[in-house]
């Protein structure tokens, strides 16, 4: 296999606006054998390629068991994503992947789960949450803490509200800024930590979002006795090749693309923010 050229064409089957600058694209591989072969774990990512422009690393947020297609939620922020935003249903992108290590969905079986996310950070973990709820009896209590800058940035609000109705599940939302229709907490996500009870030794934490938020979350939970190796962070770095060869995505001794992007707090603690 030529690792630099292992692209597969994927057609856009659907395009949904989540917020004014966040879109979810539903893709399906053009070649049936690729669609059949493509298997991933929640938390893994693809390199999404736009003709004539380039690639961006985007986590896969659909369910790994969903064989009909795959979803990528993309924030429109740079050259590639601005171009992708303009594509219509029926047009094609290129996909290389899946890459990296995903969420510890097997290790988490029988344990309580705390999910801490901020902003678009919830996208990579949404697939994992849906996965867990579809296998609800395999897992213990679930606590989902999610923060946004403004209520307008709230992605998948309906999903969060659905999750809140499941048994043994607590969903806490926070917005930095208030709004009339916002009847959840006003403030930063870290203020939600004290509102949840946890059993540290049987808790698995999954975090995704701004590094400073993950750092605050990990410090808080470590102080409450959650072992660092049970806290998982999805690291965002400049992943270009996806296979640990191009050198951009280093986190201390690790390459985020192949040793991560999901890594434990005891792995990355000394290197956060660097």
């Amino acid at each position: 296999m030529n690792t630099f050229a292992d692209f597969h064409a994927a057609r856009i089957m659907g395009k949904r606006e989540e917020t004014p600058d966040v879109w979810t694209f539903r893709l399906r591989f053009e070649a049936q054998n690729i669609a059949d072969r493509f298997a991933f774990k929640g938390g893994q990512f693809n390199m999404v390629y736009l003709f004539g422009v380039g690639e961006v690393p985007i986590s896969i947020m659909s369910d790994p068991d969903d064989k009909e297609g795959l979803d990528h939620t993309i924030r429109i922020v740079g050259r590639v994503t601005r171009g992708i935003e303009k594509l219509n249903v029926g047009e094609t992108l290129g996909i290389r992947g899946p890459f990296g290590k995903g969420w510890p969905l097997e290790e988490a079986k029988g344990k309580d789960i705390v999910v801490i996310t901020g902003g678009l950070g919830c996208a990579p973990v949404v697939g994992a949450i849906e996965y867990i709820f579809r296998r609800r009896e395999d897992y213990g209590q679930i606590k989902i803490l999610h923060g946004v800058k403004t209520p307008r940035d709230m992605l998948y609000k309906a999903r969060f509200e659905t999750w809140a109705r499941y048994p043994d599940t607590q969903v806490l939302l926070a917005s930095d800024q208030p709004a009339k229709a916002w009847h959840y907490h006003v403030g930063v996500v870290t203020e939600l930590f004290d509102m949840v009870d946890i059993t540290p030794e049987k808790t698995i934490v999954m975090m995704c979002g701004p590094e400073i938020m993950m750092q605050a979350g990990a410090k808080h939970l470590a102080a409450r006795g959650v072992p660092p190796q049970q806290m998982y962070l999805s690291m965002e770095r400049n992943m270009q090749c996806g296979i640990g060869l191009c050198g951009h995505c280093q986190v201390g001794p690790y390459f985020a693309c192949k040793d991560g992007p999901v890594m434990t707090y005891d792995q990355v603690a000394p290197y956060l923010g660097i």
Partner: peptide, 17 residues
């Protein structure tokens, strides 16, 4: 590494050997 060609159906990829 690779050449990408626009086709009727979309895009296709030609790896540089």
């Amino acid at each position: 590494t690779v050449k990408i060609i626009k086709t009727e159906a979309g895009i296709s990829f030609q790896a540089e050997q």
